[in-house]
Design a protein around this nucleic acid. Structure first.
Lengths: 234, 234
DNA sequence: TAGAGATTCGAACGAACGTTCGGTAACCTC
DNA sequence: GAGGTTACCGAACGTTCGTTCGAATCTCTA
């Protein structure tokens, strides 16, 4: 799995060099070259720093220190700080979607598939806390081209969840707003980075079950309660 | 309602000046002086800018431009950029808690009180979107003294919500984790700033009712569903 | 209306920022 | 082991940052 953008950048002719690609390839496939592996480590360090200080608050010098590489040396691996954030977000998002689609193949039951969605999200979230915080916390940071691309992936993820919920609604003959349900669910599961403490809180699997129960009971049960008016209408 | 910290700063001897307070007071009470009113407007402009660009990404020059005041002039009203964020967060938090406690006096019914909590939160949230985004998005930005003070108010707010839910649980004889329920609820209602569009989405009251229903059904209904194992255990 | 304090400003400070450049060392291939 | 590419670095560039300072103006009271 090569992290970099294959079409536009190859090891051997990596960044601003427009001097003809001398591609380090085997057969047709770009390999996990040393370049790729080093870049992956840099992205990991960068995610930790962006997580801790925020994108704007973190400096390239912080990353240089954490990665044990000179400031100038970093720019061999990506073309700008913005590009760095883009690479982190894209890789994180694509991976979580990829894993989800793999797991969704395991069930055809609508409710079960929603549970798979939640469990996949939380599992990846808690195993990659830093990157996932960067993904959710800095989701308006990127602008224009790179921002648009990330936003497109986000819509894709949203759409998957919406489809799962509407499938459930159809199957059980329920009535609820898909949009509201998706966004309510996203709120619950994305908010976790603000509070989860592995020493105190449940692990991913247990948390996923609890949150699935909470959410699904809320969605599945008929709307029996009517709002009591606190004041008599005047 | 004076915005500033009365004990440490008064109009007339406002900031770095330690030259003896000549307090502009009437009777015992500090008034909404011109100083207070101008400060309130600055906080409003600052909230908009912090909301748009983030705390770190926003510059004092941005604020100077938006407020139509010189860069140096700003420092007559607060002592630093960090103080500015602190004043915004403190005022916002204190106001939402104050209003909540006022409204909670109107009902003794446990479920109704939870609904009041949600409605109050969403009402204030949507009416003060910028300040509330700054409150939630920059909640780890402040450190040390000022950060500790804000975190204390946040715990207070958390505790109010937790007590409401445990009151509900006791009254209805239910079983659920209060912590998980509070944080799940907070996720749903705080996440809103990332998606709410007033031209498309429900208004505060309707949204509060929908979210209350979703959440309360999830909490009130018995845990009937057992997790179906997707794979037979191997 | 004189004077004291509140308010505002232009200009500048040092520090930190993202990025670039020319060069050196390490590596791989033949 | 020569030659070309990859990997990396020290030093610096130009810009922007938060903040300060002394002076000018405005406002209110006595």
């Amino acid at each position: 799995m090569a992290l970099q953008n294959v079409e536009t950048r190859l090891p051997g002719a990596p960044l601003n060099g427009r001097k003809g690609r001398t591609a380090l390839q085997r057969g047709e496939e770009v390999m996990d070259s040393r370049f790729d592996r080093r870049l992956a480590k840099l992205l990991h360090h960068a995610a930790q720093i962006f997580c801790e200080k925020g994108y704007e608050g973190a400096s390239m010098r912080d990353l240089s220190r954490a990665a044990g590489m000179s400031l100038a040396g970093l720019y061999h691996y990506f073309e700008s700080k913005e590009d760095l954030l883009y690479l982190i977000q894209k890789h994180t998002f694509r991976t979580i979607i990829e894993r989800l689609q793999e797991k969704l193949k395991e069930s055809k039951d609508a409710e079960e598939r929603v549970r798979i969605f939640i469990e996949n999200h939380l599992e990846y979230f808690l195993a990659n806390k830093e990157a996932m915080k960067v993904l959710t916390h800095e989701d308006e940071t990127l602008k224009n081209g790179r921002g648009g691309e990330i936003r497109a992936i986000k819509r894709e993820y949203y759409k998957i969840c919406l489809d799962l919920l509407e499938e459930l609604r159809r199957e059980k003959g329920l009535q609820f707003s898909g949009r509201l349900a998706v966004l309510g669910l996203f709120g619950m599961i994305n908010w976790i980075y603000t509070w989860h403490n592995p020493r105190v809180d449940l692990d991913a699997g247990e948390l996923a079950e609890e949150m699935s129960n909470l959410f699904l009971r809320g969605v599945l049960n008929p709307a029996k309660t009517k709002r009591k008016s606190a004041k008599a209408d005047a």
